[in-house]
Design a protein around this nucleic acid. Structure first.
Length: 411
RNA sequence: CGGGGUGUGGCCCAGUUGGUAAGGCGUCUGGUUUGGGACCAGAAGAUCGUGGGUUCGAGUCCCGCCACCCCGACCA
């Protein structure tokens, strides 16, 4: 991508109606744009990052046999009435069609996925199955805040699994737990992310959240230093000890909930009368689990965790580009490098803008936060190459032109 | 939903005891620059969130509404 052709440009001043760091820097760098409280446009850079996160999620959901679908965002009133949530889920955005038929914008999809799965999963021979989607969700939050961390419209990966019995759900649940940690590892958050015990509802003692420790978080968790698991404050009254080792000295931290997995039991299969035939010909209620993760919230969390005073420091796996190539009045030489990188499928943002000072190009590169910066100038060409600098390092080195491709095909 | 705060060109903002809006960023033109958000000269761009009211006169004072931000409550 050539920066001279880019739809967006960076903004020097911090937007005054945002105080959360992730929103400020993502807006300034041109990743997102604000439309209203908790409502953001995703711009070219932002969409690239979001898609990278989504693709990691897709790869890991595939390892637990999740099949991707796309369900409706417009959901009829009747399905919510079936579970008694039309009047009890106050974050539902409700609307009325021309025929006076009422709908809600999808806030979660148990009410859609259960009738859907009922059509196909009828026998023990067809279970277990797991389907998921990555979709915009709508929640009428009383108070949206903190940029991408809590929006009224946000991206969610929601997966639902269907099982013949509790033991099968329990086993699958553990597999998904592992897949979630692989996702956090790949996006760079694993070291700060704790399996967190939370309230479980009617069908299991606990549900599990994945909480990433950062000052920007709005949840409070209590971490067991020995077991590396945590307890959410919402249940700390009844469980003020580590659920794994019973240790009582837990460390309080602020954290962002970047995922949540939940054993639903038969709550929804019962409401929609979803049963399967067992091998003796008896109809049995299906056991369900659900597994949520917000890619847009993950993106905001990554920004809260990976930045310095100059801008974002993207982990390589989800950076909008691997390399930011800056031409300081040497577009001809830089253009050759750019074409070579493109030819070798190495993602590069090429700052080919003319009449833009070096200072601004450096400042933009730091703000946008690609992992590696290559500078081409008369100085570097005289030294026989280009200057290479990692975003998170102060060290620069001159590398020969013919070594660039080799260097980055391996990184 | 309670409490607090803020609304002035695309963005950040100044605006005194009420007298018709200043500056910076960005944009456009010309020139000078080019390794850390450059400089000079010129230009365009504002029904001051919105609706009432007070006044000879309202960005400024009063009332309603709206939007945004923060704290809290809420967040299967």
């Amino acid at each position: 991508m050539k920066q001279s052709q880019l739809f967006t440009k960076t903004i020097k001043e911090t937007p005054k109606d945002e105080t959360s760091f992730n929103a400020q820097v993502l807006i300034r760098a041109g990743f997102i744009d604000k439309v209203g409280a908790g409502i953001y446009n995703f711009l070219p850079f932002g969409l690239k990052v979001l898609n990278k996160i989504n693709n990691i999620v897709r790869e890991e959901m595939a390892t637990v046999s999740g099949q991707e679908v796309l369900m409706t965002a417009l959901t009829p009133k009747e399905v919510w009435q079936a579970t008694d949530r039309w009047d009890n889920f106050d974050a539902l955005f409700k609307l009325t069609g021309n025929d006076d038929k009422e709908y809600a914008l999808g806030a979660t999809h148990e009410e859609i996925v259960t009738p859907l799965a009922k059509k196909f999963l009828c026998s023990y021979k067809e279970l277990p199955k797991s389907i998921y989607q990555i979709q915009v969700k709508f929640r009428n939050e009383k108070r949206a805040k903190a940029g991408l961390l809590r929006g009224r419209e946000f991206f969610m990966k929601d997966m639902y699994s269907f099982h013949t019995d509790q033991a099968d759900l329990d086993k699958y649940y553990e597999e998904v737990k592992e897949a979630y940690f692989r996702i956090y590892e790949r996006v760079g958050l694993k070291d700060l992310t704790y399996l967190t015990y939370s309230s479980g509802g009617a069908f299991s003692k606990f549900s599990h959240e994945f909480q990433t420790v950062t000052e920007a978080g709005e949840d409070h968790i209590y971490i067991c230093p020995d077991c590396k698991v945590a307890v959410n404050r919402e249940i700390i009254g009844e469980h003020n000890f580590c659920p794994v080792c019973n240790k009582a000295e837990l460390k309080e931290e602020k954290a962002i909930e970047v995922g949540n997995i939940f054993k639903l039991g038969t709550k929804f299969s019962h409401a929609f009368d979803m049963k399967y035939m067992d091998n003796s010909g008896q109809a049995q209620e299906v056991i369900m689990g659900c597994y949520g993760m917000g890619p847009s919230r993950v993106m905001g969390t990554v920004v809260e965790v990976f930045h310095d005073d100059k801008g974002i420091t993207w982990p390589e796996a989800i950076a909008p580009f691997k390399i930011h190539l800056l031409s300081l009045k040497e577009n001809e030489a830089a253009e050759k490098i750019y074409s070579e990188l493109i030819k070798n499928n190495i993602e590069v943002l090429f700052d080919d803008r003319e009449d833009i000072g070096a200072g601004q190009k450096f400042a933009d590169a730091d703000l946008i936060g690609c992992p590696y910066r290559l500078v081409v100038s008369s100085k570097t060409l005289q030294l026989g190459g280009v200057e290479l600098k990692a975003r998170t390092s102060d060290q620069m080195e001159i590398i020969p032109l013919d070594s660039i491709i080799n260097k980055f095909s391996h990184k």
